[in-house]
Design a protein around this nucleic acid. Structure first.
Lengths: 141, 141
DNA sequence: GTCCTTGCAAAACGTTTGCAGTTCA
DNA sequence: TGAACTGCAAACGTTTTGCAAGGAC
């Protein structure tokens, strides 16, 4: 589903279709980089010089609430946003902060966890921390 | 290992043993609640009325760097701290924000992920999101 | 025309930093 | 004694909010 299709669907729920929103969502869908709000801002500003960071956050929160993007937050760094809300996992580089996708079959644990704990499990998040190939190479030098 | 033993061990690495640090670490070790820095501050202030939030953060960062506690961060809420740095997983309630421990054998995935992706995996984090038993009950009313 | 959204600025929030004074070793 | 730590306050970066003007429908 592309940006226009998603925004059309949202329109039927009372969310307005604006060119800024289209630019933000298109960028999120086409990049694999898990950008921060600031990075999205810089990118969208190339097309819409007057856009503000407030609008970026407004749109990101709206898309997140409707389940079209994911917010990934880490201790010290600012949040990163993922245009792929379909389930997948992440590899986080502890040195450069980069976040890479890791596609693999989802773990079938939720039902078992719910049974064991009484929690009504709705989703899960799995992340691996370490060094990306680039940073491993640098460590050798 | 209790707070005094941990602080004694840190002393041999040049970290000073202060009563504020003892109070902070004791609270983290005895609670299961994964408190925020602010909650730790409120608790420690009962014993040390003059303590400052800066000291709380200073101590939490020191303990985290030495691997004695974990920092858990989520999108909108502030970080929570876990006095149990031994590997275990977490259940996060989407309604009340509570974080519960989930003890189970660790997944043996790191080696496989490293092989598949070229990442040098050093740790992983697994969290389940949903409704805790209390909030499920409330939803019925 | 209505009301949602934008841009801007200010504010809020959690966290870090700088510094003078204090305490631990 | 001297380096590490404390308390305080100011600073910081990220995110949210308030509001008047603008744009979608």
């Amino acid at each position: 589903m592309d940006a226009i299709a998603i925004l059309r669907e949202l329109k039927s729920r009372g969310v307005r279709f604006t060119p800024q929103r289209q630019a933000i969502l298109e960028f999120l869908l086409e990049t694999k980089a898990h950008p921060t709000a600031e990075e999205i801002f810089q990118h969208v500003r190339a097309k819409f010089p007057g856009v503000s960071l407030g609008t970026i956050y407004n749109t990101l929160n709206m898309l997140k609430e409707h389940g079209h993007i994911l917010e990934l937050s880490y201790g010290d760094m600012s949040s990163r946003f993922d245009g792929n809300a379909k389930n997948h996992y992440h590899l986080v580089c502890l040195k450069c902060g980069r976040v890479l996708d890791y596609d693999r079959p989802l773990l079938a644990l939720e039902e078992e966890v719910g049974r064991e704990t009484g929690f009504q499990v709705m989703s899960h998040r799995l992340e691996f921390y370490g060094l990306c190939p680039d940073c491993q190479e640098q460590a050798l030098n």
